[in-house]
Amino acid sequence: MTPDLTVKIGKLTLRNPVMPASGCFGYGEEYAVFYSLEQLGAIVVKGTTAKPWTGNPPVRLAETPAGMLNAIGLQNPGAEAAREKIRQLQQYNTPVIVNVAGHSPKEYLQVIRILDEEPAVSAYELNISCPNVRDGGLAFGTDPQVVNTLVQAVRQATEKTLIVKLSPNVTDIVAIARAAEDAGADALSLINTLLGMAIDSETRRPLLANLTGGLSGPAIKPVALRMVWQVSEAVHIPVIGMGGITCAADAVEFLLAGATAVAIGSAHFINPTVCPEVVQGIAAYLTRHGFRAVREIIGLAKKAAGGEGEKDAGKDHCRS
Protein backbone atom coordinates (compact mmCIF):
# COMPACT_ATOMS: atom_id res chain seq x y z
CA MET A 1 0.00 0.00 0.00
CA THR A 2 1.35 3.44 -0.86
CA PRO A 3 1.77 5.49 2.30
CA ASP A 4 -0.24 8.68 2.73
CA LEU A 5 2.16 11.56 2.12
CA THR A 6 -0.28 14.44 2.56
CA VAL A 7 0.39 17.16 5.10
CA LYS A 8 -1.36 20.40 6.01
CA ILE A 9 0.28 23.80 6.11
CA GLY A 10 -2.21 26.52 7.08
CA LYS A 11 -5.14 26.30 4.68
CA LEU A 12 -3.18 24.17 2.24
CA THR A 13 -3.20 20.43 1.91
CA LEU A 14 0.00 19.31 0.19
CA ARG A 15 0.09 16.01 -1.69
CA ASN A 16 3.51 15.37 -0.18
CA PRO A 17 5.79 17.22 2.24
CA VAL A 18 8.49 18.17 -0.30
CA MET A 19 8.95 21.59 -1.89
CA PRO A 20 11.83 23.59 -3.34
CA ALA A 21 13.33 26.36 -1.24
CA SER A 22 12.81 29.89 -2.49
CA GLY A 23 15.63 31.25 -4.62
CA CYS A 24 16.83 27.84 -5.73
CA PHE A 25 13.98 27.16 -8.13
CA GLY A 26 13.51 30.40 -10.06
CA TYR A 27 9.84 30.63 -11.05
CA GLY A 28 9.66 26.90 -11.68
CA GLU A 29 10.09 26.92 -15.46
CA GLU A 30 13.81 26.11 -15.25
CA TYR A 31 13.12 22.73 -13.64
CA ALA A 32 9.90 21.93 -15.48
CA VAL A 33 12.05 20.60 -18.35
CA PHE A 34 13.33 17.83 -16.06
CA TYR A 35 10.05 16.55 -14.56
CA SER A 36 6.41 17.53 -14.12
CA LEU A 37 6.11 19.96 -11.23
CA GLU A 38 2.93 18.09 -10.22
CA GLN A 39 5.26 15.78 -8.33
CA LEU A 40 5.99 18.55 -5.80
CA GLY A 41 4.06 19.18 -2.60
CA ALA A 42 4.23 22.89 -3.36
CA ILE A 43 6.12 25.21 -5.69
CA VAL A 44 8.03 27.97 -3.89
CA VAL A 45 9.10 30.79 -6.17
CA LYS A 46 11.87 33.35 -5.88
CA GLY A 47 11.93 36.20 -3.40
CA THR A 48 9.60 38.78 -4.96
CA THR A 49 9.55 42.51 -4.27
CA ALA A 50 7.11 45.27 -5.19
CA LYS A 51 9.41 46.80 -7.83
CA PRO A 52 12.12 44.94 -9.80
CA TRP A 53 15.39 44.47 -7.90
CA THR A 54 18.72 44.24 -9.73
CA GLY A 55 20.51 42.25 -7.03
CA ASN A 56 24.19 42.38 -6.18
CA PRO A 57 27.14 42.71 -8.58
CA PRO A 58 29.07 39.53 -9.46
CA VAL A 59 30.94 37.54 -8.15
CA ARG A 60 27.79 36.19 -6.50
CA LEU A 61 28.84 32.61 -5.75
CA ALA A 62 31.62 30.84 -3.90
CA GLU A 63 31.98 27.15 -3.22
CA THR A 64 32.88 26.22 0.36
CA PRO A 65 33.46 22.86 2.08
CA ALA A 66 30.30 20.77 1.50
CA GLY A 67 28.38 23.89 0.64
CA MET A 68 28.30 27.24 -1.06
CA LEU A 69 27.95 30.95 -0.39
CA ASN A 70 25.59 33.09 -2.42
CA ALA A 71 25.05 36.81 -2.52
CA ILE A 72 22.46 37.15 -5.27
CA GLY A 73 20.69 39.96 -3.41
CA LEU A 74 17.10 39.02 -4.31
CA GLN A 75 17.34 39.92 -7.99
CA ASN A 76 13.78 39.58 -9.26
CA PRO A 77 11.50 41.15 -11.88
CA GLY A 78 9.04 42.63 -9.36
CA ALA A 79 5.59 41.44 -8.34
CA GLU A 80 3.77 42.49 -11.54
CA ALA A 81 6.10 40.55 -13.82
CA ALA A 82 6.29 37.68 -11.34
CA ARG A 83 2.51 37.33 -11.44
CA GLU A 84 2.68 36.46 -15.14
CA LYS A 85 5.27 33.75 -14.44
CA ILE A 86 3.25 32.43 -11.50
CA ARG A 87 0.13 32.11 -13.69
CA GLN A 88 2.08 29.73 -15.90
CA LEU A 89 2.40 27.41 -12.90
CA GLN A 90 -1.36 26.86 -12.60
CA GLN A 91 -1.10 24.05 -15.16
CA TYR A 92 0.61 21.90 -12.49
CA ASN A 93 -2.35 21.92 -10.09
CA THR A 94 0.10 22.40 -7.19
CA PRO A 95 0.00 25.13 -4.53
CA VAL A 96 2.29 28.05 -5.33
CA ILE A 97 3.99 29.79 -2.41
CA VAL A 98 5.42 33.22 -3.14
CA ASN A 99 8.41 34.37 -1.11
CA VAL A 100 7.86 38.06 -0.30
CA ALA A 101 10.61 40.56 0.45
CA GLY A 102 11.02 44.32 0.80
CA HIS A 103 13.03 47.20 2.21
CA SER A 104 10.19 48.35 4.46
CA PRO A 105 6.88 47.03 5.84
CA LYS A 106 5.19 49.15 3.19
CA GLU A 107 7.02 47.30 0.41
CA TYR A 108 6.05 43.91 1.84
CA LEU A 109 2.42 45.02 1.89
CA GLN A 110 2.67 46.30 -1.69
CA VAL A 111 3.65 42.83 -2.88
CA ILE A 112 0.67 41.34 -1.05
CA ARG A 113 -1.61 43.97 -2.57
CA ILE A 114 -0.39 43.16 -6.09
CA LEU A 115 -0.71 39.40 -5.69
CA ASP A 116 -3.57 38.86 -3.27
CA GLU A 117 -6.36 38.78 -5.86
CA GLU A 118 -4.37 36.34 -7.99
CA PRO A 119 -5.86 32.84 -7.66
CA ALA A 120 -2.59 31.27 -8.84
CA VAL A 121 -0.96 32.39 -5.57
CA SER A 122 -1.80 29.98 -2.75
CA ALA A 123 0.37 31.27 0.07
CA TYR A 124 3.08 33.72 1.06
CA GLU A 125 6.39 33.04 2.64
CA LEU A 126 7.53 36.20 4.36
CA ASN A 127 11.25 36.60 3.85
CA ILE A 128 12.54 38.28 6.99
CA SER A 129 15.83 36.47 6.78
CA CYS A 130 17.77 37.26 3.62
CA PRO A 131 21.33 38.08 4.68
CA ASN A 132 22.24 39.64 1.33
CA VAL A 133 20.28 42.87 1.22
CA ARG A 134 20.83 45.96 3.28
CA ASP A 135 17.84 47.70 4.90
CA GLY A 136 15.52 44.77 4.60
CA GLY A 137 15.40 41.03 4.70
CA LEU A 138 17.42 40.05 7.70
CA ALA A 139 16.87 43.46 9.36
CA PHE A 140 13.23 42.46 9.90
CA GLY A 141 14.03 39.04 11.25
CA THR A 142 16.31 39.54 14.21
CA ASP A 143 14.11 41.43 16.70
CA PRO A 144 10.96 39.71 18.05
CA GLN A 145 9.09 43.03 18.36
CA VAL A 146 9.86 44.03 14.75
CA VAL A 147 8.86 40.55 13.56
CA ASN A 148 5.61 40.74 15.48
CA THR A 149 4.69 44.13 14.03
CA LEU A 150 5.50 43.16 10.43
CA VAL A 151 3.73 39.80 10.57
CA GLN A 152 0.64 41.40 12.15
CA ALA A 153 0.48 43.98 9.37
CA VAL A 154 0.75 41.32 6.68
CA ARG A 155 -1.71 39.07 8.50
CA GLN A 156 -4.30 41.85 8.35
CA ALA A 157 -3.68 42.28 4.62
CA THR A 158 -4.33 38.70 3.52
CA GLU A 159 -6.51 35.66 4.11
CA LYS A 160 -4.04 33.42 2.32
CA THR A 161 -1.78 31.04 4.17
CA LEU A 162 1.08 32.98 5.71
CA ILE A 163 4.44 31.34 6.32
CA VAL A 164 7.27 33.26 7.99
CA LYS A 165 10.82 32.29 7.01
CA LEU A 166 13.25 32.55 9.88
CA SER A 167 16.92 33.39 9.94
CA PRO A 168 19.49 31.32 11.83
CA ASN A 169 21.54 34.50 12.30
CA VAL A 170 20.01 35.28 15.69
CA THR A 171 20.80 34.55 19.31
CA ASP A 172 17.44 32.97 20.09
CA ILE A 173 15.45 31.67 17.14
CA VAL A 174 12.70 30.43 19.46
CA ALA A 175 11.87 33.99 20.52
CA ILE A 176 11.55 35.03 16.87
CA ALA A 177 9.43 31.97 16.13
CA ARG A 178 7.04 32.73 18.99
CA ALA A 179 6.77 36.38 17.88
CA ALA A 180 5.73 35.27 14.40
CA GLU A 181 3.25 32.73 15.77
CA ASP A 182 1.72 35.29 18.14
CA ALA A 183 1.29 37.72 15.24
CA GLY A 184 -0.81 35.22 13.31
CA ALA A 185 1.58 33.25 11.11
CA ASP A 186 0.10 29.95 9.87
CA ALA A 187 3.47 28.24 9.63
CA LEU A 188 7.21 28.86 9.93
CA SER A 189 9.98 27.89 7.54
CA LEU A 190 13.58 27.55 8.65
CA ILE A 191 16.40 28.00 8.21
CA ASN A 192 17.44 30.64 5.71
CA THR A 193 21.17 30.73 4.95
CA LEU A 194 23.86 31.38 7.54
CA LEU A 195 25.83 34.57 7.05
CA GLY A 196 29.37 33.72 6.01
CA MET A 197 32.35 34.69 3.91
CA ALA A 198 35.32 33.28 2.01
CA ILE A 199 38.69 34.79 1.12
CA ASP A 200 41.08 33.75 -1.65
CA SER A 201 44.44 33.46 0.08
CA GLU A 202 46.35 33.84 -3.19
CA THR A 203 44.71 37.06 -4.33
CA ARG A 204 44.07 38.15 -0.71
CA ARG A 205 40.54 39.26 -1.62
CA PRO A 206 37.09 38.20 -0.46
CA LEU A 207 35.60 35.82 -3.05
CA LEU A 208 32.22 37.54 -3.11
CA ALA A 209 31.79 41.08 -4.45
CA ASN A 210 29.28 41.61 -1.63
CA LEU A 211 32.00 40.45 0.82
CA THR A 212 29.52 38.30 2.76
CA GLY A 213 26.96 35.80 1.58
CA GLY A 214 24.54 33.15 2.72
CA LEU A 215 25.94 29.70 3.43
CA SER A 216 23.88 26.71 2.31
CA GLY A 217 24.40 23.04 1.57
CA PRO A 218 25.18 19.95 3.65
CA ALA A 219 27.59 21.99 5.79
CA ILE A 220 24.66 23.71 7.53
CA LYS A 221 22.39 20.68 8.03
CA PRO A 222 23.22 20.03 11.70
CA VAL A 223 22.52 23.67 12.57
CA ALA A 224 19.22 23.61 10.67
CA LEU A 225 18.14 20.35 12.24
CA ARG A 226 18.83 21.63 15.76
CA MET A 227 16.82 24.79 15.11
CA VAL A 228 13.89 22.87 13.61
CA TRP A 229 13.89 20.65 16.70
CA GLN A 230 13.87 23.65 19.06
CA VAL A 231 11.29 25.70 17.17
CA SER A 232 8.83 22.88 16.48
CA GLU A 233 8.86 22.18 20.20
CA ALA A 234 8.10 25.78 21.10
CA VAL A 235 5.26 26.62 18.68
CA HIS A 236 1.89 25.09 17.80
CA ILE A 237 2.00 25.86 14.07
CA PRO A 238 3.65 23.65 11.43
CA VAL A 239 7.34 24.04 10.65
CA ILE A 240 8.81 23.62 7.18
CA GLY A 241 12.37 22.41 7.72
CA MET A 242 15.26 23.12 5.41
CA GLY A 243 19.03 23.46 5.33
CA GLY A 244 21.37 21.07 3.56
CA ILE A 245 18.87 18.42 2.48
CA THR A 246 20.26 16.46 -0.48
CA CYS A 247 18.46 13.09 -0.18
CA ALA A 248 15.45 11.36 1.35
CA ALA A 249 17.34 10.34 4.50
CA ASP A 250 18.13 14.01 5.18
CA ALA A 251 14.46 14.93 4.68
CA VAL A 252 13.36 12.17 7.06
CA GLU A 253 15.73 13.55 9.72
CA PHE A 254 13.94 16.91 9.54
CA LEU A 255 10.52 15.25 9.78
CA LEU A 256 11.70 13.23 12.78
CA ALA A 257 12.97 16.47 14.34
CA GLY A 258 9.49 17.96 14.16
CA ALA A 259 9.12 19.47 10.68
CA THR A 260 5.74 18.92 9.00
CA ALA A 261 7.25 19.46 5.56
CA VAL A 262 10.70 20.04 4.08
CA ALA A 263 12.20 22.35 1.50
CA ILE A 264 15.18 21.58 -0.69
CA GLY A 265 17.48 24.37 -1.75
CA SER A 266 20.95 24.31 -3.22
CA ALA A 267 20.73 20.53 -3.80
CA HIS A 268 18.82 21.45 -6.96
CA PHE A 269 22.09 22.76 -8.32
CA ILE A 270 23.78 19.39 -7.96
CA ASN A 271 20.75 17.30 -8.85
CA PRO A 272 17.92 18.87 -10.84
CA THR A 273 15.59 15.97 -10.04
CA VAL A 274 16.26 15.94 -6.29
CA CYS A 275 12.69 16.79 -5.25
CA PRO A 276 10.87 13.89 -6.93
CA GLU A 277 13.67 11.57 -5.79
CA VAL A 278 13.18 12.69 -2.18
CA VAL A 279 9.39 12.20 -2.46
CA GLN A 280 9.93 8.63 -3.63
CA GLY A 281 12.58 8.05 -1.00
CA ILE A 282 10.30 9.21 1.82
CA ALA A 283 7.55 6.88 0.60
CA ALA A 284 10.02 4.00 0.46
CA TYR A 285 11.24 4.82 3.98
CA LEU A 286 7.70 4.81 5.37
CA THR A 287 6.92 1.49 3.69
CA ARG A 288 10.18 -0.06 4.89
CA HIS A 289 9.43 0.91 8.49
CA GLY A 290 5.72 0.06 8.42
CA PHE A 291 4.30 3.58 8.67
CA ARG A 292 1.04 4.27 6.87
CA ALA A 293 1.34 8.04 6.74
CA VAL A 294 4.14 10.57 6.80
CA ARG A 295 2.30 12.36 9.61
CA GLU A 296 3.18 9.43 11.88
CA ILE A 297 6.88 10.27 11.86
CA ILE A 298 6.67 14.02 12.46
CA GLY A 299 8.64 14.75 15.64
CA LEU A 300 9.14 11.05 16.33
CA ALA A 301 12.79 11.48 17.32
CA LYS A 302 11.65 13.60 20.25
CA LYS A 303 9.63 10.76 21.67
CA ALA A 304 12.63 8.51 21.27
CA ALA A 305 14.79 11.07 23.04
CA GLY A 306 12.45 11.06 26.05
CA GLY A 307 11.75 13.78 28.63
CA GLU A 308 15.27 14.77 29.59
CA GLY A 309 16.61 14.86 26.07
CA GLU A 310 13.60 16.77 24.88
CA LYS A 311 14.03 19.52 27.42
CA ASP A 312 17.77 19.80 27.02
CA ALA A 313 18.09 19.47 23.28
CA GLY A 314 20.11 22.22 21.76
CA LYS A 315 20.75 23.91 25.07
CA ASP A 316 23.79 22.20 26.43
CA HIS A 317 25.83 20.19 24.00
CA CYS A 318 28.99 20.69 25.99
CA ARG A 319 27.92 18.87 29.13
CA SER A 320 28.17 15.39 27.65
Partner: peptide
Protein backbone atom coordinates in the same frame (compact mmCIF):
# COMPACT_ATOMS: atom_id res chain seq x y z
CA UNK B 1 32.48 31.39 -18.96
CA UNK B 2 31.53 32.12 -15.37
CA UNK B 3 31.38 30.45 -11.99
CA UNK B 4 28.04 28.67 -11.92
CA UNK B 5 25.84 26.86 -9.50
CA UNK B 6 22.62 25.60 -11.12
CA UNK B 7 23.55 25.84 -14.81
CA UNK B 8 19.85 26.08 -15.76
CA UNK B 9 19.00 29.74 -15.14
CA UNK B 10 17.43 29.40 -11.70
CA UNK B 11 20.00 30.67 -9.21
CA UNK B 12 21.16 33.86 -11.00
CA UNK B 13 24.68 33.24 -9.72
CA UNK B 14 26.57 33.48 -13.04
CA UNK B 15 25.36 36.84 -14.33
CA UNK B 16 27.49 39.25 -16.32
CA UNK B 17 26.66 42.86 -17.14
Amino acid sequence: EARMACGVGACLGCVIR
